[in-house]
Amino acid sequence: MAFEVPKVSYTGKIREIPLGREGSTVTVGGESCYSFHLFEGEMPYTPKIAMEVYDSEPEDWSDTALEPFADVIKDPVAWARKCIDTYGAEMIALQLASTDPNDKDISADEAAKITKKVADAVEVPLIVWGCANVEKDTEVLKAVCEVCEGKNLIIGPVVEGNYRAIGAAAIAYKHTVVASTPIDINLAKQLNILLGNLNVPDEKIIIDPSTGALGYGLEYCYSVMERIRMAALVQEDERLQFPIISNLAKEVWKTKEVKVTEAEAPLLGDLGKRGILMEALTAQCVLLAGANILVMRHPEAISLVKQSIKDLMTGK
């Protein structure tokens, strides 16, 4: 009996979505196979990494995560520039954490002003992520859409409770939306259908099926991503044929395991390297499951993941 490579016949393809403003767009998606299955399909655009920037100085960050940004931590514009100029960021993800009513609760106007400054200062695609409070995000992200008209920001999280308002603003001011659902393939599909009914163009939708950190529910996200890819590529489920984003850094860097020192827990080894690997391994898993955009924090974790993408794409 001779050996024969068993190939999957893919019938679907992930949509190609250009992100960012005209003239400097970055395209994601376009796959006609499972991630990195290059022996039986194509991945015309490599997965991209967006570096996190926060709208105000973060509290409670571990030293490992803080250290590379210590000089810019108070200034989102300088922070974004450093990500691009020093670390070669392909995209920026502005986390509007201080809009959270349970946190600093800054106003929609203020958040929009900060976003505008960052958007004007960067040429790479800009993701703008709210605080995941449905009402507040509606207010904030609408304002953001308006002041950044035409920049094709990537706006999220857009959820069932606010997709109409944010979706309408995204259409009016020409931005891309992140359709966010809680780890459920059917809800993901449903929200994409709703966005379609609202007339959000198909080339303006990215899926966020939610992300958990390594050791904190990663397996659920991993499987929902694999299922979405399977539905999109071999079951021709058109409403799931969108690129996937994974906003993973903030999940990883709040876990206990990236903060407990080696002195407190000798078996966990070097604190700095452990945090970097916790982030990089979370990213590696979601990459293999199908993520196209990874929102990441630590430059060394990013560099490990970039190397891994390169190795898997080119075979070195």
């Binding site: 390594l214 080696e262 080894g269 070097d270 690997l277 391994l281």
Partner: peptide
């Protein structure tokens, strides 16, 4: 086998 590497791997 170093804690900072094997621990995240075992979690994965």
């Amino acid at each position: 086998i170093e804690g900072h590497s094997i621990f995240p791997l075992l979690l994965a």
